[in-house]
Design a protein around this nucleic acid. Structure first.
Lengths: 320, 320
DNA sequence: GTGAAAGCGCTAACAT
DNA sequence: ATGTTAGCGCTTTCAC
């Protein structure tokens, strides 16, 4: 900036004015400055700007895995909102590891992001207390933060969605409905189990429940075990998109009526089409970002807790 | 940091030493500093650190769309490499808009990222010359940069892949093979067209070629037009994953032998399974990141041009 | 309409 | 083993 000022024969502050589009510079002067900028290939140093102004025009997003379509849709929605607000996005995948989540969030805080959107992997967010007290806005998406933290949340109706799925299968005449869910450490998995259990009532049988991170092997083993029961399941409820796909693949050839939590691309093109409880990842991302930018703009109201509806998308996978 | 120093009764530089794990601090002193840090909820300000040290420990990634599985896989691979090198990732989607690509890249440069990985949307990268001359490493992935720029590239064998697809269809007895590709503005689309054309030779017929961004409407119109020819296509070659999926959906019910460029989740579970030319997006991301971090580490050798192989994955969609 | 000076929070270089 | 000083490149404040 000093060099540009020298080259244009003005003071440093005038260059700053031109670069920031501030008023109070004669057009001719501004033009001279711009010419010098182009000639020298000058780029404003945002680190210095951030240091002085305190605003970074950057928000941090921690998700579980960018490569998972659920989170990549959510990411895209957050990014679109960020663009509209002139912000860039720092992204990180926690891989469901609380330590990694914490590292990422703290690294973002060190960079003084203007706000955070977090899909929590852990259930202890005490480490975030200093930032929240310092006024750094944070929105939790898909899962709530650990206890004792009063922050905005955007969740979906997990238990209600599970109830939809189970009722649909009950209506199809099924009484033995298995649930294949993700690890009980994950909030959404536990909530969906709760919805499943409460809806089944007397029909609940814990031998028809399997909950852990889905690997092809574990899913296959779960299915074999359940199908070998003397009273085997006649239908399946799968607890998220990855599990649904893993189950479909593990079934290779065989077929069982099925409802999956989460919609996924091509669910409609499989035969039969897969009936799902659809969330709206893009809507969740958009909602979280809207909330965050309202906070960044200065909204200091009480924490908001948005719960987005889910809907049953009936395809062919339950009909006889 | 000043406050922490005061609270711990040491000089500012000692706090800096503790925070950076530098040697030359007595354990007892370090402990006192750490205690003060925890008590005050101190977080190092990375903007100041960056300003002083010149390194940001951040790399910038510009892709076309995070929500596209091809790019989200690539992103994840880049992120994993970044983590290993203690870097964070600034991500942005260009949405195939050259102006947006430029804005993102320049915004990243203003933030003084240590390096750039770019999937170019435009074909003029003169705007990047000042950075490259200033020694900012950049790797171009999936598509080369505009002319006159001598930077590292990681591409796949687009024309060779198209040749594989066409030869497979020819071997299946087809002589009228249509190509549905993306916009000719996209390097990969043009290269795949070239491979298709060169392999077909005499059999090439431009009435069997359609190239533009795939919308359900345009794809349906293309198919209708081609199928209404007096000598209609007996097989399809689709130019990327999105087109393949859009075509499958547009065919609703009807069926034509098909090979698609790009593998996609569930391609194997459709019936028939979809034969594809598979790229390796994760491998491309990993390769690009490895190259970038070698440059960041100081490698000033001549520009490297990596071309990754593709492979034909035969499923059922061509057999009669 | 323009400029000079102070200082954001840190690290590098050099004492002690 | 610890402290002092200068200065990274910008914005803020105030003066002209």
């Amino acid at each position: 900036m000093k060099d540009v000022a020298e080259a244009a024969g003005v003071a440093l502050k005038t260059v700053s004015r031109v670069v920031n589009g501030e008023p109070g510079v004669r057009p001719a002067t501004a033009e001279r400055v711009r010419e010098a900028i182009a000639r020298l290939g000058y780029r404003r140093n945002e680190s210095a700007r951030m240091l002085r102004s305190g605003r970074t025009s950057t928000i941090g997003l921690v998700i579980e895995d960018v490569a998972d379509p659920f989170y990549s849709g959510l990411s895209r929605a957050v990014e679109d909102a960020a663009i509209r607000h002139g912000c860039l996005l720092l992204t990180g995948s926690s891989g469901e590891d609380p330590a990694r989540e914490r590292e990422l969030v703290l690294a973002f805080c060190n960079r003084r992001v203007d706000g955070l959107i977090v899909v929590p992997a852990g259930d202890d967010h005490a480490y975030l207390r200093p930032e929240l007290e310092a006024g750094v806005p944070a929105v939790f998406v898909d899962r709530p933060p650990g206890p004792g933290l009063d922050a905005d949340t955007v969740l979906c109706d997990n238990a209600g969605g599970a109830a939809l799925a189970v009722r649909h299968l009950l209506a199809g005449g099924h009484r033995r409905i298995a649930f294949l869910g993700d690890s009980p450490a994950i909030y959404t998995a536990t909530e969906r189990l709760r919805g499943y259990r409460e809806t089944l009532g007397e029909l609940f049988d814990e031998r028809l429940v399997a909950m852990h991170p889905p690997t092809p092997e574990s899913v296959r083993a779960d299915l074999e075990r359940m199908l070998a029961l003397e009273d085997p399941p006649t239908a399946l409820f799968t607890g998220n998109g990855r599990i649904t796909v893993t189950v479909l693949r593990a079934m290779c050839g065989r077929w069982l009526p099925l409802v999956g939590f989460d919609d996924f691309e091509l669910a409609d093109l499989l035969s039969p089409g897969v009936t799902v409880v659809a969330q709206d990842p893009v809507g969740m991302g958009r909602m979280a970002a809207d909330l965050l930018f309202r906070r960044i703009a200065g909204d200091r109201g009480p924490a908001e807790h948005v719960r987005l509806p889910v809907r049953l998308v009936v395809r062919g996978s339950v009909a006889r």
